Amino acid sequence: MQEYSNGSPAASIDAAWTKSRKSTANGQCVELASLPGGKVAVRNSTDPAGPALIFEPAEFDAFLDGARNREFDHLIAR
């Protein structure tokens, strides 16, 4: 089983990448991929070969909880 770490080239990650249906037509969004062991990889869709962030299951769960609770709304550009 391949082990990935933060900064791994996203192009080297053999996984199905998913992006939000709210993604803009020019592809400016983040994409996520499920990895073994419940880890999640995140990459910039405009640089699909660039570095990926790799999150442990608990880290990603904490992020999703914060997003659901609107803890990051102040970061949205308006």
Rank of each mutant, 00 (worst) to 15 (best):
D65I: 04
E3A: 09
D47M: 09
H74D: 12
P36F: 02
E3L: 11
A41W: 00
D61F: 09
R21V: 06
P36N: 11
S12H: 11
P57N: 09
P48I: 04
A25T: 11
K39H: 15
T24C: 10
S23P: 02
A15R: 00
D65C: 08
S20T: 01
L75M: 15
F60N: 02
K19H: 13
F72P: 01
S45V: 05
A49T: 14
M1W: 04
C29E: 04
K39G: 03
E3R: 12
E3H: 12
K19I: 07
T24V: 06
F55K: 01
N26S: 13
A58L: 08
D73N: 13
I13H: 02
D47H: 12
P9D: 08
D47V: 07
S23I: 02
P48H: 05
R78L: 10
Q2V: 12
F55T: 03
Q28S: 11
A10G: 04
L53R: 14
V42L: 14
N6T: 03
P48R: 06
F55Y: 15
F55L: 15
R21M: 05
D65V: 04
S20R: 00
N44V: 07
R70H: 12
N26E: 11
N6L: 02
W17V: 01
F63T: 04
E59G: 10
S45H: 12
S45A: 15
S20N: 04
G50N: 11
E56V: 03
R21S: 15
A52D: 03
T46S: 12
P57S: 11
S23G: 02
R43P: 04
V30Y: 05
Q2G: 00
D14W: 03
A10H: 02
D73A: 06
S34Y: 06
A25P: 02
A67E: 09
A58K: 13
A62V: 06
K22Y: 13
A62I: 06
A11M: 07
L35A: 04
S20W: 00
R21E: 08
I54F: 03
H74L: 05
A52N: 03
E3K: 10
